[in-house]
Design a protein around this nucleic acid. Structure first.
Lengths: 222, 222
DNA sequence: CGGCATCCGTGACGATACTG
DNA sequence: CAGTATCGTCACGGATGCCG
C-alpha cells in the first residue's frame, strides 16, 4: 500500500491543554499559531482563500488551509459558496467567531504599547490599524461609518455602537460613509494608546475630517 | 569542538510574525503555547517554579523554563530571589505583564461559553474559576476581598475596583476577607456567563454568603 | 487561476532522565 | 527544589504539484 488515507476525519489527535478552565478551552480553539490573525482578517468581512493568504504574509498554504478547517470544525467560521456567476467560495465568521472581537480588541490595546517602530522586515496592511483606531472612536455617541485613508491604503470602520454591529470594519472605501478621515498610521496608534485625543489631532492638523453630519462634528470636537 | 555554547543570548532567531500590527506584535510576545496560561497563574501572585509546574499540568519542564526566560526577556515577568532564610526564587508579573488581565478576562469570557462538561482527562484547579467569577462581581460598587470556597479548593478575589488592583486574585484563603462565599464550580461558570445573577443564586441557596459588611449585603442583593 | 495537497528540512514540543 | 540534557515526534514554513 503506497499511501493509506491521510486524514480520517481529523485523527482525534487534536492537541488540547486538557484543563477544565475557560482560558485553556479558549486557547484550545484559538491558541494555535495564525488562528487569531485569521480571525483579525475575517473581522473585516467574508474573504476568499487567496485574499486571506495575501494579507497573512508568512503563513504557508497548508497551514492556512488546515487552520480554516479547524475553525470550521470549532464553529468559528463557515465556508460559503458564492452564486454560480462567480464560482468562488468565501470564509466568514460565525456569531461565535465574531465573539472574539473583545479578545482581539484587548490584545490590540495591549500590543499597541509594544508597537513603536516599523522594522524593515515588517509587512503592513491598512486595515490592521482598524482595531487601534476603533478604540479611539469608542467613546463617540453618534453612530456611523467612517472611511479611513492611510498612506498604506483605505478601510472603513463603524463608530459608536460599542462594537455591537455585525461588521465592525471592512476593507477598502465604504459605500456611503458619513465621514471621511485621513491620517497616518502612527497617529492611529497614538490615538489607540490614548496618547493623543481626537480633538488634539484635529487641532494639530494631523487628521483631516470631511463630512457634515453630527458624527463628523463630534469627531472634530465641536 | 565537542560542544559549542548552545545559546548565545537567545540566538536572535526568535520566530516573529513580522507584521506591523498590534495584534501580531502582541502574539509575538504571548502567542506561544503555554505563555498565556503561565500569565493566568502569575495573575494570582508570585509563584515558585515548582508550584507553577504543578498548576500547569501537561507542560514539560524545559518548555516552562524556556517560556519563563522568554517572559523575562519580553518584560512580562521578573525572577526575584527570596531573602536567605528561605533560599528560593519566585516569578512575578511586571506591570506590563499585569496589563494582560483584560486579555485574559476577555478570553475567559469567550471560553466560558465553550466550557460545558468536564472531560475525564481534564485537570482542575480552584483558582481557574477566579476570572469567570470576577466577571460576575464586576458590577459591584463596594470593594473588598472575597474568599471563595469551591469543592476543588479555596481562592480569593478582590471585588469592585474594576480590576485596577495590583493583585486581582490569589491562592488559598485570604488573610482578612470581608466576605466568604461557598459555591460550586458550575455556578461560577453560570455567573460568569450571566446565565444566573448573584441575587438569583443567593435566593436558590446555590451560594452561601457569610460576612456582615456592605459588600456582603450587596452580594446578597440587599 | 483559485484552492488546496504533497514533500521535505528545520525547529518546537513533550516525556524522561539527570544534575547542582 | 530548580532547572538542564537528551531524544523522539510533530508542527511549521517554503516550494512545488495537482485538479476542477
Amino acid at each position: 500500500m503506497p499511501r493509506q488515507q491521510q486524514q480520517a476525519a481529523r485523527p482525534v489527535r487534536r492537541r488540547s491543554y486538557d484543563q477544565f478552565c475557560a482560558n485553556a478551552r479558549a486557547l484550545d480553539s484559538v491558541g494555535d499559531r495564525w488562528t487569531l490573525l485569521i480571525v483579525r482578517e475575517l473581522l473585516g468581512g467574508p474573504r476568499r482563500y487567496t485574499d486571506l493568504h495575501a494579507d497573512l504574509p508568512g503563513v504557508s498554504t497548508d497551514v492556512l488551509a488546515s487552520r480554516l478547517k479547524d475553525m470550521e470544525h470549532n464553529g468559528l467560521a463557515v465556508r460559503r459558496r458564492l452564486p454560480p456567476p462567480a464560482p468562488a467560495s468565501v470564509y466568514e465568521l460565525t456569531e461565535r467567531g465574531h465573539g472574539l472581537l473583545p479578545v482581539l480588541a484587548a490584545l490590540a490595546a495591549w500590543g499597541t504599547h509594544a508597537l513603536d517602530e516599523r522594522r524593515p522586515t515588517d509587512a503592513v496592511r491598512a486595515h490592521w490599524f482598524a482595531l487601534p483606531l476603533l478604540r479611539a472612536l469608542d467613546g463617540l455617541t453618534h453612530e456611523g461609518v467612517v472611511e479611513v485613508a492611510l498612506n498604506e491604503g483605505d478601510f472603513h470602520v463603524r463608530a459608536g455602537g460599542g462594537g455591537a454591529a455585525a461588521e465592525v470594519y471592512g476593507f477598502g472605501p465604504a459605500e456611503r460613509p458619513e465621514v471621511r478621515i485621513a491620517l497616518d498610521a502612527a497617529l492611529c496608534l497614538e490615538l489607540g494608546r490614548g496618547d493623543v485625543t481626537l480633538a488634539e489631532a484635529v487641532g494639530d492638523g494631523r487628521i483631516t475630517v470631511s463630512g457634515d453630519g453630527p458624527l463628523a462634528a463630534e469627531i472634530r470636537g465641536e
